[in-house]
Design a protein around this nucleic acid. Sequence first.
DNA 1: TGATTTCGTTCAAACTTTGAACAGTCGCTT
DNA 2: AAGCGACTGTTCAAAGTTTGAACGAAATCA
Lengths: 119, 119
Amino acid sequence: MTNTSASLDEALALRALQALESDPNLSQRALARELGVSLGKTNYCLRALMDKGLVKLQNFQHNPRKMRYAYLLTPQGIEEKTRMTWQFLRRKEAEYEALQAEIAELRRRVEADAGVEGR
Amino acid sequence: MTNTSASLDEALALRALQALESDPNLSQRALARELGVSLGKTNYCLRALMDKGLVKLQNFQHNPRKMRYAYLLTPQGIEEKTRMTWQFLRRKEAEYEALQAEIAELRRRVEADAGVEGR
DNA sequence: TGATTTCGTTCAAACTTTGAACAGTCGCTT
DNA sequence: AAGCGACTGTTCAAAGTTTGAACGAAATCA
């Protein structure tokens, strides 16, 4: 609801960057599981991150006993991750205040109902 | 993501009940605007509430200078609204705590990045 | 050497949401 | 009365989104 149509889900992208930074050897399936979305969506998100140059595919040709790919954050990727983290911090703080207000409002309603209905 | 497929959006339903309780004369369009969703979805939600007996259509046949319908909460509707409000209060309090943790985590990340990157 | 597992990719199908279009009704004005 | 404009609820094709089964390639196992 917050996003502009067929574009990348920013919150998802940030979580992907965080997950990949802490473990670049995650497969798309493992990443999908961690993010709680489908394989197809994860693939789409990852592709977008690579297109933007935030993640690079490391393909060590014939490295023994290693997984096929590693999804490494580029320097830009790290920078962007930081920027997004700040942005989310700001947003979350706003949500935090909104939630406080919402909780207060819910309490008010509960009490009002109790008064009217004699609970 | 939290819902079981083609069913009713509970959060939306609660907000609809709240809005209609405070003004039963809202048209579906006005309600849609207030809820921030499309007319079609509002119609669907409203129909579900009526099917469940939480909202009743008051159709005063030829009442002069009045809008065609009023969407009145039934006693069950009011009861259900209270139940849902409690439920949401509980959920929101949990979210509140989760947000606190998330904000702390974001702060931690920001500081960690600053340390690594010399910001 | 198969057989098995895991990989990324694809894309038809399912699901969700939208809002233009339609038919009906009311209050006006002509 | 008849026409008009503004409003009503309903419908549903189209657009948007998400899913995960299916596929071929590659690594690993037996």
